[in-house]
Each structure stands twice: as structure tokens, then as C-alpha cells.
């Protein structure tokens, strides 16, 4: 038994040190592509760290977003940057001592906060376990995210919308020349896309009883769309105008409508227990759709042209 504990400690130590070292390397890197690859590797190790912290829900989200979307998003962004001479400094070197001082202060503050944390806090898990029966789901994480603190999730959906508004304000579609797609990529995408859609549905459904839910499912669905876009499917041509906007607001709109209804009845987002399960499922389906389309639209990096706008 003793040896097992030691091995677990060694594993965790190696994982923690590896993460710190990776973070340092990727921040230090002058080569942006190298930094992107290191960041993808960082996400991988971070998912393992969440597993070790007993948070499989977060590990799932990290895997879906870190492994699938962040890498693709950063690669696409990197491709749009004008190539830069490597020897050129990234920023004004003179301001660096001020930056270091500020970072030192932040680090000291964080250290103080961690140090002053209570040794053992009871937390809210007992209270959640007591009220789980009335939440409509069996997974405590889903119960917190969509029932007990549903407004957090509502605001998170709004944050995603704001991010997309920011990207759309940068401009509309520019014509880009792409290389023709080979048979291998086409086959790969044809295999993966239906599986990705299936797994997204599975994660959405599993979220009621086990780790999973709208964010993970949405991210997987978005990965499917990103793959299709990369393989030259003209998704941006199919999803334009009103259809696109409806899908983007489906999640937030359902949430807001439900918030309004519950506000009239009793309290903000307090569902009647007998309908809670169905309402949560409805919210999750709408949110999954919106999250997926928003993330895919973020990957596109520009506002798709509507039919009325000239080419």
C-alpha cells in the first residue's frame, strides 16, 4: 500500500512539474508555431491534471476544447498573421522590468491567498447532495450548472456571444485560395464527422447522470464543423443570414425565456421539481447547438457574407 501511495505522489509531482515547465517554455518561445504546439501539449497534460484532481467533468471539457478547438483556432489565427522576422523582438524590451514587478506582485498575492485558505472547508457538496433529488438530474455538476446556479451558465453563453460579436466586428469574408482536398482527408472527415455528432449526442445525454453536458457536447459538435470547414465543405455558405443567427441565439434565448417565466412564477431560474429534468434537457439541447455554432463561427474568423451583400 505504501508503495502505491508513493507512486501516485511521484506521478502527480511529475505532472505538476511538467505543466510548470511547459508553461514556462511556451511563454518564453519566440517561435509562435512552437508556442502553439506547446500549448496543445499543455492542454493535454492539463486534462490529466484535472483527472488527478477528481474533476472528470472539467477533464472532458478540457479534452474537447483543448485537443479539438484551441489548436485549430490558434493555427488558423497564426496562418492569418503576416510572417515576421524571428530575430525581431516581440515587444518593447524597456517596459519589461515594470512587467516583471507587476507579475511578482500578482504571484505574491496569489501565494498569500493560497496560504490563507482554510485547511479544510466543508464546501457545499453536502447541501447539493441533499437537494439533488429535486434538481431533475443525477449528476451534481449538471445540477449546479443548469439548475442551482443556472444564471452562471446563462452568462457564460452571453460571453461566448460577445466573443463572436468581437470577431464579427473585424470584417466580412475575404476570398481565400485553398489547396484542393485529397482523398485521404476526405475519407478521414467522412469517417470522423458522423462519429463526432454521435459522441456529442452521447455526451449531452450522459450529462444527466455522469460527466458530460452542453459545453462538452457543443465543443465536440463544433469540432465536427471545423473539420468540415477545413476539408473544404462550404458550411459558411449554407449557414448564413437568419438560419445562422437563430442557431446562435437558440441557447441564450431559451435560457432568457425560461428565466422570464420562472421570474413571473417564483424566482429566477427556479424550476418546478416535477418538470426540472425536461427543462434542463431542453436548455442543454439549445445551448449545445448555440455553443457549437458559435465556436465554429469563431474558428471561421470573419462574419459570413449574407446573400444580400455583394461578393
Amino acid at each position: 500500500m505504501e508503495k502505491v501511495t508513493l507512486l501516485i505522489m511521484l506521478f502527480d509531482l511529475l505532472l505538476g512539474l511538467g505543466l510548470l515547465w511547459l508553461a514556462w517554455q511556451l511563454l518564453e518561445s519566440r517561435n509562435l508555431f512552437k508556442a502553439v504546439v506547446l500549448f496543445v501539449a499543455f492542454g493535454l497534460l492539463m486534462a490529466l491534471a484535472w483527472v488527478r484532481l477528481d474533476a472528470p467533468d472539467v477533464a472532458l471539457a478540457e479534452a474537447a476544447i483543448g485537443a479539438g478547438l484551441t489548436g485549430a483556432l490558434l493555427m488558423a489565427a497564426l496562418a492569418k498573421l503576416p510572417s515576421r522576422d524571428k530575430s525581431e523582438p516581440l515587444a518593447d524590451e524597456k517596459g519589461h522590468w515594470l512587467l516583471r514587478l507587476a507579475l511578482l506582485l500578482v504571484a505574491a498575492g496569489l501565494g498569500y491567498v493560497v496560504h490563507s485558505l482554510p485547511e479544510s472547508a466543508p464546501g457545499l457538496s453536502a447541501e447539493i447532495a441533499n437537494n439533488l433529488a429535486s434538481s431533475g438530474v443525477n449528476n451534481p455538476v449538471t445540477a449546479v450548472l443548469l439548475n442551482f446556479r443556472g444564471y452562471d451558465t446563462l452568462l457564460e453563453l452571453m460571453v461566448l456571444m460577445l466573443a463572436l460579436l468581437g470577431v464579427w466586428s473585424l470584417g466580412i469574408e475575404r476570398s481565400t485560395r485553398e489547396e484542393p482536398v485529397g482523398p485521404v482527408l476526405t475519407t478521414l472527415v467522412q469517417f470522423l464527422t458522423p462519429l463526432l455528432i454521435l459522441v456529442a449526442a452521447y455526451l449531452l445525454w450522459a450529462g444527466a447522470d455522469a460527466p458530460g453536458g452542453a459545453f462538452q457536447a457543443g465543443a465536440v459538435l463544433a469540432a465536427a464543423m471545423v473539420l468540415l470547414l477545413l476539408a473544404g465543405w462550404p458550411l459558411q455558405g449554407l449557414l448564413t443570414g437568419v438560419a445562422l443567427r437563430l442557431m446562435l441565439v437558440a441557447g441564450p434565448a431559451t435560457f432568457v425565456a425560461l428565466a422570464g417565466l420562472t421570474l413571473l412564477d417564483a424566482q429566477l431560474l427556479a424550476y418546478p421539481p416535477q418538470h426540472a429534468g425536461k427543462l434542463i434537457l431542453l436548455l442543454e439541447v439549445a445551448a449545445t447547438l448555440s455553443i457549437a455554432v458559435t465556436l465554429a463561427a469563431l474558428f471561421l474568423g470573419y462574419r459570413p457574407r449574407t446573400n444580400k451583400e455583394p461578393g
Binding site: 485529397g182 485521404v184 482527408l185 475519407t187 478521414l188 469517417f191 470522423l192 462519429l195
Partner: peptide, 16 residues
């Protein structure tokens, strides 16, 4: 199966 598929596909794409 998925790892095999991704590995083979990606290796081909990177190499070509």
C-alpha cells in the same frame, strides 16, 4: 480504431 485512423490519416497528410 479511432487512434489508428487518425494516426494513419494525419501521418499521410503531414508527409505529403
Amino acid at each position: 480504431g479511432l487512434v489508428l485512423l487518425a494516426g494513419a490519416g494525419v501521418a499521410h497528410l503531414i508527409a505529403s
